[in-house]
Amino acid sequence: MDTIETISLSNLALALIPALLVLLIFARWSLNVVHPVYALMRMLTQLALVGYALAFIFAAENSHIILLVLCIMCFASSWIALSTVKELRLTLYKYAFLAITIGGGFTLLLITQGTLHLTPWFAPHYMVPIAGMVFANSMNSVSLSAERLHSELLNKHSYIEARNIAFQAAMIPVINSLFAVGLVSLPGMMTGQILSGISPFIAARYQIMVMAMIFGSSGLSTALYLSFVKYSYARHFS
Rank of each mutant, 00 (worst) to 15 (best):
G104N: 06
A123E: 10
L149S: 02
T84V: 10
P124D: 05
G114P: 05
E161G: 11
S177W: 08
Q168F: 07
S83Q: 14
Q193C: 04
F179Q: 14
Q193W: 05
P124L: 13
G216Y: 01
F97T: 06
L144I: 07
F58R: 13
P36Q: 11
V128I: 15
C71K: 12
F228T: 02
W121D: 07
F135R: 03
L92C: 11
V184W: 02
S63A: 15
L47C: 10
G132S: 04
E5Y: 15
I111W: 00
H157Q: 14
L40F: 03
R42N: 07
I165R: 06
V184A: 10
F58M: 13
G114Q: 14
A203I: 03
L90Y: 08
I7W: 13
V184N: 08
L54E: 01
M171Y: 05
L82N: 07
A204C: 06
A15W: 06
Y206E: 03
L220T: 09
F97E: 01
A203K: 02
N62C: 06
N137E: 08
S10H: 15
S83H: 12
I172V: 14
S199L: 02
I175F: 08
V34R: 10
R89H: 09
L9G: 01
K156R: 15
A170G: 10
S151T: 15
Y206L: 03
G192N: 08
L178W: 03
Q168W: 04
V69T: 05
R205Q: 09
L220F: 05
F179A: 12
L224C: 05
S199F: 02
V85F: 04
I17R: 05
A59H: 13
N62R: 12
F201V: 02
I57Y: 14
W79C: 11
G132C: 05
Q113K: 14
A169I: 08
T107C: 12
I175E: 06
V33N: 11
S227E: 04
A204Q: 04
Y225S: 13
P36T: 02
V128D: 03
L47K: 13
L90W: 11
F228E: 07
Y38C: 04
L183R: 12
A27I: 00
H157E: 12
P36S: 10
Y95Q: 11
Q193I: 03
S227W: 02
I102S: 13
T119I: 14
R148A: 07
L67E: 04
V229F: 00
Y159C: 05
V50K: 13
A169V: 11
W29Q: 09
A212S: 09
W29V: 02
A234Q: 00
M41S: 09
S83K: 15
S217I: 04
Q168M: 02
T6V: 12
I175N: 09
V69D: 08
T3E: 00
Q46R: 13
L88R: 15
G188E: 10
F106W: 07
I65H: 09
A53S: 11
S30I: 00
Q168L: 10
S199V: 01
F26D: 02
Y38Q: 11
A55I: 10
L20E: 01
